[in-house]
Design a protein around this nucleic acid. Sequence first.
DNA 1: GTGAAAGCGCTAACAT
DNA 2: ATGTTAGCGCTTTCAC
Lengths: 344, 344
Amino acid sequence: MMVTITDVAEKAGVSKSTVSQYLNKRYEYMSAQTRQKIETTIAELDYQPNILARSLKQKRTSTIGVIVANIVHGFSIEICRALEDYFQEQSMNVILCNSDEDMEKEKTYLETLQAKQVDGIILFPTGENKSLYKKLVKERMPLLFLDRKVEGVLSDTVVVNNAEAVFQATEHLAEQGHKRIAIITEPLTISSRIDRMEGYKRAVRELGLEQRQEFMIHCEIGQIRSKLAELFSGTERPTAMIAGNELVLMEILSFIKNNQMPVPEELALIVFDNISFAHLLTPTLTAIAQPTLEMGRAAGKLLMNRITADVPTNGPPREQVFDCKLIIRESSRRSTRPQNEFWG
Amino acid sequence: MMVTITDVAEKAGVSKSTVSQYLNKRYEYMSAQTRQKIETTIAELDYQPNILARSLKQKRTSTIGVIVANIVHGFSIEICRALEDYFQEQSMNVILCNSDEDMEKEKTYLETLQAKQVDGIILFPTGENKSLYKKLVKERMPLLFLDRKVEGVLSDTVVVNNAEAVFQATEHLAEQGHKRIAIITEPLTISSRIDRMEGYKRAVRELGLEQRQEFMIHCEIGQIRSKLAELFSGTERPTAMIAGNELVLMEILSFIKNNQMPVPEELALIVFDNISFAHLLTPTLTAIAQPTLEMGRAAGKLLMNRITADVPTNGPPREQVFDCKLIIRESSRRSTRPQNEFWG
DNA sequence: GTGAAAGCGCTAACAT
DNA sequence: ATGTTAGCGCTTTCAC
């Protein structure tokens, strides 16, 4: 059935230890002759070492766990792809998990990953399992938070400057003459959403924009349509809007389409996140792009530092903050829009 | 450091085997008293079994490998999500790999996954490592092909009826009065692309459409633009077009936008794949939707059958074929288009 | 240079 | 009902 190191040793007429040395490329401990002998025997038997057994002994699995909120979102995917690329280069594999922002699922995954002895974990934290995060850190599990910060947990973190990015987006809208700007996000349960809202608030304050409670919407995706209907039924309508992420955008676009609102004439629009089709919409869509590939790589590197102990596992937490890039397209420009009434 | 089953046994004053029985919920082999004792001891010590050690012994890792072409594509993501959901229910974890259609990467991943003793593998095959696929099957590794068939490998397969789906799409275009229909796919290296092209050819034949070599484009993504330029520079232009997948679509949309071609008046368009924003484009986009969630679940189930040996590992291969659904929207309709020159 | 032996943490007969 | 024992396949001292 399965061919083991013992089979190789016997057939090559050497001991298990020598074969093991060979496998670990410690050729200095053997004659060129035995080395040759082992090599051919391995080929003949088509032997492949059992990594499980090795891992048990070495206490390293060359596997890391990645827990995202929901991989179906563009941002998560790009991050996952970057992480997978990076870890492949490092000869590490990635176990992928979707928490769906559910603290129970997150807990189960974290515990399973630990039990499976992964070498490290990258997490889009729900923020609701703080004591578990702390426990993991205490037990020296390399742990890195992505996209969101969690107060009080001494763990590495990679985030973007959410507040600043939204501030700039709002400022851009203000420069286009808008005074009545709305923002919509999912519930303010995680740091990135809170920070985006804060960036908006600061912009409203500092740029002297119209300050209204109704312009700050934070609710579940399913409620967005009705909130929008309400917002636009009144007389105090916003003239511009920021979508807090891709999901929120989809709802807003539906609303706009259903109500035939001219963009940007009646409503200017900016979305937070790299939307793959932003440049194909009519009008094209202004977006706040997160540097997902760089973030993924950075996260991978920080985690690897801890795993290889280049940076002590119990060292102080490191936080890496990336800047976003505002990609200005037609949906936020005051300028007259082109004559195209079709894609083009 | 790490707390083991031995620690629990000692502290609880029982033997390792009893603790092991407890862990495996074989409570009939112990008194309520010892059971209680073990339970509290485990809690006190915050003991967690080392799954690695268990796996080594049991020869099951509760982990499966999924190798997709590129997770960044909508189709792959949805499949991955469905797979992850299904396997979570089965208490299995998923190692995710991106092959980028590169046979070397695919080979490395397949070998690593086998060495890591995964319980099964789901693969979007490049088709170029046939002997390796065969070897895996021979060595009783549960292996399932997704999205593409591979001739001559006795392995379970989940695909859609690509030919039929494209036939129907072409037929729909013909019904709208089109005689000159083009199709663009990536290179015809995998079965799904070949089958889509075949469906087109059959439709052209059977429905008496104009048969021209220039209308059947299959090339790398990077070449699509120039191919399109060529196609539309001539006098024999198509009046309708089918995009072989999401990536192809993006190129076509760019071309259409750059050249301000009215859709569907000058060019009707249908895309193969569930495009998340199809209903938000102007005009809305007709699409051939694959039942990704069902496919993912089906694939998961077929693989689990083999893993649990409900179906013998050496049994005959099973092929599950799903039907696609043509979702007709504005981009393929002859009817006069609505007056909207914005999203709406 | 090479091999013997111990052990990673767990499970699973087999005794008792 | 509980304990003893023998591994799973590999790595790693430590002798020779």
